[in-house]
Structure formats: structure tokens, C-alpha cells
Design a protein around this nucleic acid. Sequence first.
DNA 1: TATTTTGGTTTCATATTGAAACTAGATGGA
DNA 2: TCCATCTAGTTTCAATATGAAACCAAAATA
Lengths: 150, 150
Amino acid sequence: MKRTRMDEASCPIARTLDVVGDWWSLLIVRDAFLGKRRFGEFQKSLGVAKNILSARLKTLLAADILASVPAADGSAFNDYVLTQKGRDLFPVVIALRQWGEKHGFSSGEHFPPLVDAACGKPLAPLEVRDAAGKSLKPQDTILLPMPQEA
Amino acid sequence: MKRTRMDEASCPIARTLDVVGDWWSLLIVRDAFLGKRRFGEFQKSLGVAKNILSARLKTLLAADILASVPAADGSAFNDYVLTQKGRDLFPVVIALRQWGEKHGFSSGEHFPPLVDAACGKPLAPLEVRDAAGKSLKPQDTILLPMPQEA
DNA sequence: TATTTTGGTTTCATATTGAAACTAGATGGA
DNA sequence: TCCATCTAGTTTCAATATGAAACCAAAATA
């Protein structure tokens, strides 16, 4: 009765969720994008129990999403930084953010805006596009059957 | 000791994850994008325990991501279909998928491709862009402080 | 050197998950 | 129409995961 694993699923979405599909992992990744690097920074920012944070950091390290490196400030402790694989989660995090911006707040509420550092303006909404750059709606896409080996 | 809720978080990412940040919800949404509508279809496709599926469908209904409608085939049972709010998760699902395609499979493995229904070609990788359409990397963005009410 | 901070681990109660059994209503066949 | 089966759940129960707090060693600080 362990948690159902999806690391053997044929679906790429399931494989992603198998690694980062829990309540905390993507928030840790979010904080890493915001420049947080130390255990204590994550713990304070997230308010997560230390044992849970410890476990999540271990799985993110094992998944090569985070790497443990010598602290930037010269301390003997370690920093947790995003690997390239971790940085590749940027569209995931932005997609989650934009959905939350649109659907997660009532009209009177506000949230800290994420903007283009150069011009200070909000990001464009993510668009799913075809190879030629045309915007696609869900029904414009189709899942083909699994390719079979010869 | 209930699950830590993030529905009051100031961060839009946290608010999104509060609703769909568990292991199953986004897979249900994925299946809904693929046209699945019935309890049994979801259950068979996901292999999830029926009590868990039942609970997840309830929260997705409560969150207005799915709606319960009379069955399309005339049966007395109900269909679960995506609302507009649910369809707005399309970029989230595609982002998860593309990350999984890139990082979730070893070189010999294959997965069913999702393609543009019109031309049969794979989708373009999602790009985070600024208001003018320029592609942005994580470090090109900055989180501004919470706007304070007057 | 003494004290505090950091980065964890351990312990324990509670919550959640998952498997299986169970059930009511819908459907289909004879 | 009656019976059997299917669908869509709910209930029950064991196992696992979570969260809070206590604990601890090494590092930093005074």
C-alpha cells in the first residue's frame, strides 16, 4: 500500500508527476528560482516541517533537479541550487503561476507580480503552439498511439 | 496534523498546487483532455483506487475544474467534463508533458507522441515570453513585492 | 570558551492512501 | 418481466505519509 508509483508510466506527464507531483516539491523549485539556496531559507519560506523538507530535498537531489554545492557565502554548510534539469521546470512553474493568478484569487485580492526584469512588465500568458508557431487549443492536438519497436 | 493548506498563500503557484498539487488530480485532468468522461474510464486508465478517484473528482468538481453533466451517450450516469477553468490548465499539462518527454525517459524508451491534429507534427516547446514576445530565462524575471492597499 | 544558530534526525500522533469488500441503482438479455 | 451483470460509487481496515515537537551535532558567533 505504498504510494502508487508512476515512474514506469508510458505517459510523460505521469513520469513528471512521479518526481515533482507532491504538495511541496514544486514550491521548493519555485523558491530555488527565486534565489533561495539554504535549508533554513526554504524552511522559513515554506513553513514546512523540517523532516518533510529534508525528505523532499533528498528526492530532488536524487532526481538531479537540485544539486548540493559549497555555500556561496563561504560557510561550511551547503547550498541547494537548480541543475539544468531543474531550470527546465521554468515553464511548469510559470504555467502553474499563471493559472493561479487567473483562477486562485478573488477580485479584491492581490499577489506579488512576477515581471520581466528588463522592462518591468508582466509576462505574456503561455501559449501552446505548433511547430510553425500557431497557437493551439486542446482539441487541436491529438495523442498518437505508442510507437512500436520493429 | 492535517495536510498543510496553501489556499491562503500569497503566491499564485501555491494556490494552484493547493487545488491540483497532488499525485492524481492532474492525471485526471489529462485524461479529461483526452476525452475521457466517465468514472470507469478514469479508473481504468489511471489504475487508481475507486475511493481515491471518488474523492479527487469531488474536489475537482468543487474547484469548478470539472463539471458533472448528463452522459453524452444517453445513459443515466453522469459525465465529468472540463470547465473553462479546467481547460485553462492546458499549458500546465503541456509543460509537465514536455519536461517528462525531455527528462523522464531513457534513450531507448518511447512514449505516445502528442501532435498537432492538423499537420501531425509535434508541438513547439513552451516558451516563457515577455509582453513583446521575447523569450525569457528564469533570471530575466523578477518577483516584485506585494502591492499594498492604500 | 561559552552560547547560539544551522541543518538536520528521531519520535510519535494523526491523516491520507490503497486494496478489497460491499451496495444501490442502471442496464441488458432471455 | 425477471434475473444477471455492470456502473458508480461507499465503507472498512491496514499500511504509509505527514506534521509538530523534541532532540542532537557541527558550525558560527560573542
